[in-house]
């Protein structure tokens, strides 16, 4: 293992592979999540993130194993709960770099209540969902992002439900950075994740990360001809235009001509949660060395 060399600016210079721990991934060969791991390492390296001041938090699922392969701090927590665990870290120690890496089931089924509340508060962290449209770890059940008709072990006859539109979901709940990436293009995915991590506020990257073992439809081969970069002239500050892109992001599931948008849909600057908390601490004259006698005097009655 390498101990990071901190530069004057507080940034460190580490190669992407130096962000990996000694533990080797246990994913199936061909799993999209390998590329996501590489992309995250690239992003951390490019951004000069100090691994001793970064925590990668996950839930439970194939994808959620990711922090175990990393040399940063990590917390492989409980199914659905990565976001509130990460929120606790970020709100209590805002100076840390916090990223959450989870699967689509973790994010939108069991943990579905947590995204809206972290997003609307603009907590400065990055949520990376490895979206394979399936529950991988429990061996092939449909997830909230599974397309209609996709067979799963509890619906062998094919999914009778419609998927949720995750990009629209995040835009609606107030995420201040919303992007989509494709694990088939690790370099671009790394760049998008890198931008997400430098964004001040709640950033979201939906990474289409195929599960070749269980999802036989949404494969690398399926996506490759369909992915299409969001046009360079798209106004990323325009929420309605971003929602317009999101609205058509799943068209490809019904329409053979449909495209899968890749890149940044939306980015805006809003005060982050920690700034508001800081203002309150200042207002209340917060101190690390409180005058206890003065505090106790407040309980003497009138």
């Amino acid at each position: 293992m390498t101990t990071a060399v901190t530069t004057a600016a507080g940034a460190v210079k580490l190669k992407p592979k130096e962000y990996r721990s000694a533990i080797e991934p246990t994913w199936c060969p061909g799993c999209g999540d390998y590329a996501v791991t590489a992309a995250i390492c690239n992003a951390l390296s490019a951004n000069g993130v100090d691994p001793d001041n970064a925590v990668i938090v996950s839930g439970i699922g194939c994808s959620s194993r990711l922090p175990l392969w990393m040399r940063t701090f990590g917390f492989h927590s409980a199914h659905g709960r990565a976001i509130p665990v990460a929120v606790g870290m970020k709100v209590s120690r805002p100076e840390l770099t916090i990223a959450v890496t989870i699967g689509d089931g973790d994010a939108f089924a069991i943990g579905g209540n947590h995204i809206p509340n972290a997003a609307r508060r603009n907590i400065d962290m990055t949520l990376i969902v490895m979206d394979n449209g399936v529950y991988g770890l429990t061996k092939n059940q449909n997830s909230p992002t599974s397309r209609e008709g996709l067979p799963g072990s509890l619906m062998p006859f094919g999914n009778i439900d419609a998927p949720i539109n995750v990009l629209a979901f995040l835009l609606t709940y107030g995420a201040t950075f919303v992007a989509q990436a494709f694990a088939g293009n690790p370099k671009q995915t790394g760049e998008i994740i890198g931008r997400a991590m430098t964004h001040k506020g709640f950033s979201y990257v939906n990474v289409l990360s195929p599960c070749p073992t269980f999802n036989k439809v949404d494969t690398f081969e399926y996506y490759r001809p369909r992915v299409q970069d969001i046009p360079a002239d798209h106004d990323t500050g325009d929420l309605l235009k971003a929602i317009g892109i999101a609205e058509h992001a799943l068209d490809h599931q019904k329409n053979p001509e449909g495209k899968v948008p890749i890149g940044l849909l939306y980015q805006t600057q809003k005060p982050v949660f920690a700034e508001k908390v800081d203002a309150l601490k200042t207002k209340y004259k917060g101190t690390d060395t409180p005058d206890w006698e003065k505090i106790l005097d407040g309980y003497k009655g009138h």
Binding site: V57, F75, S77, A78, R81, G88, S92, N117
Partner: peptide, 21 residues
Amino acid sequence: FVYQTEDEIAAIAAAIGASYV
């Protein structure tokens, strides 16, 4: 800081996260 969470699961999760750091 007092942080109002979305439910008790988030509350205990956030307490665990803060304690971890």
